[in-house]
Design a protein around this nucleic acid. Structure first.
Lengths: 140, 140
DNA sequence: TATTGTTATACTCTATAACTATA
DNA sequence: TATAGTTATAGAGTATAACAATA
């Protein structure tokens, strides 16, 4: 008997390719807003905590600090975030979400929900719950 | 009641980020072989069909034809594939897997299987089956 | 003229490293 | 001297477009 799965049958391979295709489709939906998925990720992090330092944000998003700078630049240009210098440590730029930023995040969330609906259409409710559970266990 | 999921709770968002992290981890495992995931994908396609044209391969892998050229160049340099001109249409380069290429693919498959074992460790057998099923339904 | 493979070029994304200002 | 943010530079990965050979 042959226990060996072919490469395209492994979870790692399928998760990698599926993830890349889903990310691509999500990026398409965000394009009209002038955003890429990483912008949405940054908005989401800002929305749930009080503004951390940009270095902390970099750690949380698992990207280089210099990337946070350009993401924040672009979000600032869109009026979605504001940079305020921390008066206690003037080296720190504290990022805060504006009302426009919250609206933008809501749009990103709606776009993701629409994509979810399309993706999950072929799954039964039980299968959806199972997938949700698996993703919760697999996600870092 | 609030039906609206937060962005990081959507399937699209989690599948995108998880897929990218898994792909990164898989790429690490392939590095010692001098390969990237796309090389492994090409080897896998070649292993299960008789050699198609490079353009067909590009379509199957969803990449530009020029990328197939460089992937094939690198695999040829590693002795994993051979290019043979089709005598019936001398424009066509037929790619064939060598024994070395089959061995290399086996290594890629083993690496993916090891990664699978690590990824799936926190899941029960039922959860693994459910994930497998969902991936089958979601994958193109 | 159309098609296959190839080459040349450019673009996107992201990281590393150098720099500035505060501490 | 050390740290936050920024800027400059470079590299990976991939696509687009021009090109050569063959049909």
């Amino acid at each position: 008997m042959d226990d060996e799965k072919a490469l395209p049958a492994t979870v790692a391979f399928r998760l990698g390719t599926l993830g890349s295709r889903v990310a691509e489709r999500y990026a398409e939906r965000l394009r009209p807003f002038g955003l890429k998925p990483k912008h949405a990720g940054l908005l989401a992090v800002l929305s749930r905590g009080p503004a951390a330092s940009q270095q902390d944000l970099a750690g949380e998003l698992r990207v280089a600090p210099s990337l946070v700078v350009s993401l924040a630049d672009e979000l600032e240009r869109l009026g979605a975030v504001e940079r305020v210098r921390d008066p206690h440590d003037r080296r720190r730029q504290v990022l805060t979400l504006t009302d426009g930023g919250r609206a933008l995040l809501a749009s990103c969330t709606t776009a993701a929900a629409h994509l979810d609906a399309e993706l999950l259409a072929p799954l039964t409710p039980d299968q959806r719950r199972a997938l949700d559970e698996a993703l919760a266990l697999l996600s870092p």
